[in-house]
Each structure stands twice: as structure tokens, then as C-alpha cells.
Amino acid sequence: MDLDAVRNSYARWAPVYDATFGRITHAGRRAAVRHINDRGGHVLEVGVGTGLSLEAYDRAVRVTGIDYSEEMLRKARARVARHDLNHVGSLHQMDARTLDFADNTFDMVAAMHVLSVVPEPEAVMSEIARVLRPGGQVIITNHFKHERGVWAGLARAAAPLENLLGWHSDFEIESVLQDPRLRVIERRELPPMSMMTLLVLEKRLN
């Protein structure tokens, strides 16, 4: 998937995202934010979108968000202002493959339903590992390829439409597990009907 396709797709989806994909991905966001709230600290949300998760963070958690879509970010900034979300420090337009943050900046990184919509997810994971402090955690929620069952059939049918839809329906989980600095400490399926997966990865201390 190329960057122009991502930009165009999310410009189309921005006006209706909350009522469509936002509803489908609610359980994943809720599980990810609950995990982050239990730990606290400074979190980077990669692919903050329209800011659907921002109200759910504990006010003691400091949140920085990035997204490539200005249309999505306008909605997120409006949400922050409307609900007076003072724990949200800043929201930036940024390519997740080249994060403009120093090494070891964040205690946690959240990537909720974004890794299957970006070009070069391996490069995004490398940048996430770079800006995460040693001992910090990456919380990922995403749809990954199913080998059989109803989701496998739907993914095969949707695969040719990925640029139109704006996401990889047959996204391989191995794409986010290749960075040697990160190790899996939790993996579990999420509703609806195990469509989504939650992963917790921890950055090695050395």
C-alpha cells in the first residue's frame, strides 16, 4: 500500500470513521488503554486518528499522538478542545516510518488498528522500538490474517481492494514481530468474534 493511497483513503473515511471502523475497533482500543492506564507514564499513540481513545486515558497518563492524515487530526484536536483533555500534550502530523522524536523518549507506545494501514510496517515497528525506552511496552491491537474460517474467506475477498479500503485484510502478524529489540509478553484474541488480536511487546533492557 502506497502513501498516496493511505492519504486518499483516510480523507474519504474521516467524516464517517467514528461511526464505522470506530465502532468495530472499540473493544481493541478499550483493552489497550486499560493496559496503559494500569502502568501510567508517557505514551505515544501512533495513528491517533480522530482521537477516539483520548478520553479513555487516565488523566495521570501523558499522551502524545501522531497521524499522517490531517483530516483525522483536525477531528482529534477538536475532540481535545471540546472535552478539555489536558493530559493530551500534543498531536502531530507525522509519517510513522520517520518519527521526529529522540531515542528512548516514551514509556509506552500504542498502535491501535494502524499497522495494517501503513506502508512498510516493519519500518514503523523499528521506529517504535527506537523511541521506546528499555523496559517499556508496545501495545498493539490489530486484525491479522486468519488461516481458516469466515475471517480468512473475507480477507481473501477484500485483498484486491486494499488501496480503496485503506487497510491490508490479509496482514501477517510476523510483520510486527521482527524487531529483535522487542519480545512478546502477551497475545490474546479480542471481540468481535476473535476478529482482532491484542499484543504486548516489551523492549529488552540490553
Score class of each variant (00 low, 15 high):
His92Thr: 07
Arg148Phe: 10
Ala111Val: 10
Leu177Gln: 12
Leu73Gly: 05
His168Cys: 04
Asp100Cys: 09
Ile139Ala: 08
Gly135Ile: 12
His143Thr: 13
Val6His: 03
Ala14Met: 09
Arg23Tyr: 04
Gly51Trp: 01
Gly166Met: 06
Trp13Leu: 15
Pro121Met: 13
Gly153Met: 13
Glu189His: 08
Glu127Met: 06
Ala157Gly: 04
Phe171Asn: 08
Ser126Tyr: 01
Ile128Tyr: 05
Met72Tyr: 06
Leu73Gln: 05
Ala76Asp: 01
Glu202Leu: 09
Asn104Pro: 00
Ala78Val: 00
Gly40His: 11
Thr20Met: 10
Tyr10Asn: 03
Ala5Pro: 01
Met112Val: 10
Arg12Tyr: 03
Arg156Gln: 13
Gln93Lys: 15
Leu161Met: 12
Thr64Arg: 04
Asn206Cys: 04
Asn206Thr: 13
Lys145Ile: 04
Lys203Asn: 06
Glu55Trp: 03
Met1His: 07
Ile139Phe: 15
Met125Asn: 02
Ala31Gly: 05
Gly41Arg: 02
Asp38Thr: 14
Ile185Gly: 01
Ala129Ile: 07
Asn206His: 12
Ala158Ile: 09
Ile139Asp: 00
Ala11Tyr: 02
His143Arg: 14
Val114Asn: 00
His26Phe: 10
Tyr10Glu: 07
Ala102Thr: 09
Gly65Thr: 08
Thr197Asn: 07
Gly22Thr: 04
Leu164Glu: 07
Ile139Met: 06
Pro192Met: 10
Ala11Cys: 01
Arg29Gln: 12
Ala56Thr: 04
His35Leu: 13
Arg148Met: 06
Ser126Lys: 14
Ala159Cys: 00
Arg7Gln: 03
Met94Ser: 04
Pro192Asp: 02
Arg39Leu: 14
Arg23Ser: 05
Met72Thr: 05
Phe21Gly: 07
Arg34Gly: 04
Thr20Tyr: 06
Glu172Ile: 01
Asn8His: 06
Leu132Glu: 06
Asp38Ala: 15
Ser169Gln: 05
Pro160Glu: 09
Arg156Cys: 00
Asn86Trp: 09
Asp4Thr: 13
Leu201Glu: 03
Ala5Gln: 09
Gly28Glu: 08
Arg187Tyr: 00
His92Pro: 01
Pro191His: 09
Leu132Phe: 11
Val6Gln: 12
Lys203Tyr: 04
Pro119Glu: 02
Trp167Val: 11
Ser126Ala: 15
Gly40Gln: 09
Tyr57Phe: 15
Ile139His: 15
Val63Phe: 10
Gly166Arg: 12
Asp170Glu: 13
Leu85Ser: 05
Arg12Ser: 06
Leu85Asn: 04
Thr50Tyr: 04
Leu190Lys: 05
Arg59Cys: 02
His87Asp: 08
Ser53His: 05
Thr64Pro: 00
Phe171Gly: 07
Leu190Ile: 09
Gly49Val: 08
